[in-house]
Design a binder for these strands. Structure first.
Lengths: 136, 136
DNA sequence: CAGCATCCCTCCGGATACTG
DNA sequence: CAGTATCCGGAGGGATGCTG
């Protein structure tokens, strides 16, 4: 239990924060990560980071999302405080989605990760090809 | 189609990179993100960022992961080039897992996101509580 | 326009038992 | 010790049709 072991756990302890120590199931850090890591969540956050969008605009911007998943993902992002939903009582009604301060704050590190993915997806693709070849 | 619209798409275009334009289904950036965003992947990358671990050590470090998921997640991380798997021909055999250069590179932005989650999970929890209260 | 409701199916992921 | 194999329940997510 010397300094090395303390240092050894410093990264994973972030995940253990506020957990009862027995498991990670209800770890709050994991909860937040799970909310960000949906299939469509990062894509929609990236879009809304640019400017507010209305529902139909998002549909056209992301053509292959089902309307069910668009509704549901926006609902979750709103519930977690990343997205603000504003209804304009026109007829027919229009609804505008925008990032909150919390959403813009979260966007910063998310964007870093997406940029990493853009720069390195070739390396990942090559690694997968090499792995498949080795196990053929 | 003025400058504003061009700027409007600058963030989401990262996701569209190398896609045929019709959908995001086979977008390489999304593929990379999906590989990172598994239920256990970030946690294991965090652990291996500290030092190499053997299989059993990881089991004890993350008590509530099933051994099936530990095997599978490590396999995927190895396939995508993030993790190196080295077998020592002792008896009984021991297997050590460690991050590759690519894995350490990916860890940098991932760590930023995890740190954000640690700093802001209270805000997310409060937002959820307020949302549930408003829709009660 | 901006959704909600329903059906249905895939696959993620846990529990358990067995192996080199 | 470090896995593989099998079973199975539940959540994730697409397609379609209806509403204010």
């Amino acid at each position: 239990m010397d300094g090395k072991i303390v240092n050894l756990k410093s990264k994973i302890e972030i995940y253990k924060a506020m957990t009862d120590g027995a498991n990670f199931a209800d770890c709050p850090v994991r909860n937040v990560m799970q909310g960000i890591n949906g299939k469509w969540s990062p894509l929609l956050v990236m879009a809304l980071a640019e400017k507010p969008y209305r529902f139909g605009e998002l549909r056209r911007l992301v053509p292959d999302i089902s309307q069910r998943m668009l509704t549901q993902t926006l609902h979750e992002l709103q519930r977690d405080g990343y997205v603000h939903r504003e209804v304009f009582p026109t007829k027919p009604p229009s609804v505008e989605y925008s990032l909150t301060d919390l959403g813009r704050s979260m966007f910063v590190p998310l964007y870093q990760l997406v940029q990493w993915a853009e720069l390195n997806h070739h390396a990942v693709r090559d690694a997968r090809a090499a792995f498949e070849a080795a196990h053929a």
